[in-house]
């Protein structure tokens, strides 16, 4: 069966959709975490400390996310490569019917997000890009996430890069969230337009949620 999952186009799309669903849920939880910035330093620092100290939860989650990301990227690259072998002689004229820009650029937006995630981990989690961030601790020795974010997003280059990356991520998701219902087979005739509308709305919601933090810091609402 595993053989069939990997070798068939449907099976690969299924893997892509399952891992995509997991990653989207992570992105949503991450956004909910970020929004705690608006509840003040105590709240978000307590949340961050809770995550950092729950080692039994933290490492399986990190490990699982890494596997999900690798499977998602692996199926994405192999499917794209496979799809490119299907038409040697291209059309001279091609009218784009229906296919959105997001749906045609998934590999590129996905690659950009993957690279940004590496940078993002080096920046905030591992702390090798801005050494100053690692020094920011709360009195009880945990990471002062509130101060870290304020410090990082006060740099307009960091804020702009973050906003751009979130834009690309949510553009990727504007197609991905709707499409995963198709790949997982969760769809009824007639519900199609509703699913795609809600998916785009969800992607927009994620974008607003993520971008609100750097924007608030830049405008001086969060200090």
């Amino acid at each position: 069966m595993l053989d069939r999952v990997w070798k068939s186009t449907l099976g690969k799309k299924f893997l892509m959709a399952v891992t995509g669903t997991g990653l989207v849920l992570f992105v949503f939880v991450h956004m909910m975490g970020n929004l705690q910035m608006f509840l003040g330093p105590e709240v978000i620092n307590r949340y961050a400390a809770m995550l950092q100290t729950s080692i039994e939860f933290l490492w399986p989650a990190r490990f699982g996310l890494a596997i999900f990301a690798l499977v998602h990227i692996g199926t994405g690259i192999t499917l794209t490569w496979q799809n490119r072998q299907t038409r040697d002689q291209r059309y001279a004229t091609r009218k784009l019917v229906k296919a959105t820009l997001a749906s045609r650029t998934m590999l590129w937006t996905g690659s950009f997000v993957a690279l940004y995630v590496v940078y993002h981990l080096l920046h905030f989690t591992i702390g090798t890009i801005d050494l100053h961030l690692a020094e920011m601790k709360t009195p009880d020795g945990h990471r002062d996430v509130y101060r870290m974010l304020i410090w990082a997003f006060q740099d307009s280059r960091v804020a702009c890069g973050y906003i751009l990356a979130m834009g690309v991520l949510c553009f990727h998701l504007s197609h991905g969230i709707g499409a995963l219902f198709q790949s997982l087979g969760i769809k009824k005739p007639g519900y199609e337009p509703l699913i795609y509308r809600l998916a785009r709305l969800a992607a927009l919601g994620l974008l607003v949620g993520f971008v609100s933090v750097p924007v608030a810091v830049q405008l001086g609402w969060l200090q």
Partner: peptide
């Protein structure tokens, strides 16, 4: 279908 060399679905709905 896979054997015939058709591609996978990107759900563009074209």
């Amino acid at each position: 279908m896979d054997k015939e060399g058709f591609g996978a679905c990107t759900v563009t709905l074209s």
